[in-house]
Simulated scan of single mutants.
Amino acid sequence: MKTIRIIVLALGATTLGATLGGISAPALASGKAKVPPVHVEHEDGEQVLVHKGEASFYSQKFHGRTTASGEAMNQNKPTAASRALPLGAKATVTNEDNGRTVDVIVNDRGPYVDGRVIDLSRSAARKLDMIEDGTAPVTVEVKPSEQPTEAARDKVEAKVDQLTPDRPSDRQVAERDERRAGSSGSDKGGSDKVSQSGSGK
Rank of each mutant, 00 (worst) to 15 (best):
D97I: 01
Y58N: 12
K52H: 12
A80M: 08
V93D: 04
N98C: 03
K61I: 14
Q60T: 11
I105W: 01
L87M: 14
E71A: 12
A89K: 04
D119N: 13
R116Y: 05
F57W: 10
R109G: 09
F62A: 10
V117W: 02
P78G: 00
A55P: 14
V104K: 11
Y112L: 05
D114G: 05
R100T: 06
V117N: 01
T67F: 04
D114F: 01
R83W: 05
K52W: 05
K77W: 00
S56H: 07
N95E: 03
L87F: 09
T101H: 06
T66Y: 05
R109F: 00
V102E: 03
G53Q: 09
H51P: 14
S56M: 09
L87I: 15
H51C: 11
E71L: 12
D119V: 08
V113R: 14
R116K: 14
H51I: 12
R65H: 15
G53Y: 09
E71S: 10
P111K: 06
A81I: 08
P86V: 03
G88K: 08
A81E: 06
A81N: 07
K77V: 08
V102M: 02
N98Y: 05
H51K: 13
T94D: 10
D119E: 14
Y112T: 15
S82P: 04
V117S: 03
M73E: 02
R109W: 02
